[in-house]
C-alpha cells in the first residue's frame, strides 16, 4: 500500500541528484530493499513506472531493485545465519537472541545518467 509513497520519494531523490550532476537523461535507478522492509517489489516497480511518466528526465529510466537477504548473528554463540523464514532462531544453539545484520534496508544506491 505504501509503495506509491516510496516511489515518489525515490523519484524526488533521483531528480535532485540528476540535476546536481547536470544529467540529461536518467538510465537506471538502483535501490536496495531488505526482505524485512515491508515493501513489495512488484508494487514498487509498478508505482515507479507510473510516477516516472510525469518527468521527462526519467521517462526512459529503469528501476533495478536489489533484494537484500535477512542475515543475523546469534548473540549467545556468535553463529551467523541467513533466514528464509521470518522466524529468527539460531541454527546452531536455538537461541532467539539474534541480532539482525541485514534485511531492513530501504535505500537508493545509485543512478546511471547521460
Amino acid at each position: 500500500m505504501h509503495e506509491l509513497g516510496i516511489a515518489s520519494s525515490l523519484i524526488e531523490i533521483v531528480i535532485e541528484t540528476a540535476e546536481a550532476n547536470d544529467a540529461e537523461i536518467v538510465r537506471t535507478v538502483t535501490a536496495k530493499i531488505g526482505r524485512l522492509a515491508g515493501v513489495d517489489s512488484n508494487a514498487l516497480y509498478f508505482a515507479y513506472d507510473a510516477v516516472k511518466e510525469e518527468y521527462p528526465l526519467l521517462k526512459d529510466s529503469k528501476l533495478i531493485i536489489e533484494t537484500v537477504p535477512i542475515t543475523g548473528q546469534c548473540e549467545d554463540c556468535g553463529k551467523t545465519d541467513t533466514y528464509e523464514e521470518m522466524f529468527f532462531a539460531c541454527s546452531s544453539c536455538g537461541s532467539f537472541s539474534v541480532k539482525l545484520l541485514t534485511g531492513e534496508e530501504l535505500t537508493i544506491s545509485n543512478i546511471e545518467v547521460d
Binding site: T17, A23, L106, T107, I108, I111, D114
Partner: peptide, 15 residues
C-alpha cells in the same frame, strides 16, 4: 553513461 553513487535511505513524506 556515468554512475552517480547516492546510498541514501528513502524517507517517505509520511516519515
Amino acid at each position: 553513461m556515468a554512475k552517480v553513487n547516492i546510498e541514501k535511505k528513502i524517507l517517505t513524506k509520511n516519515e
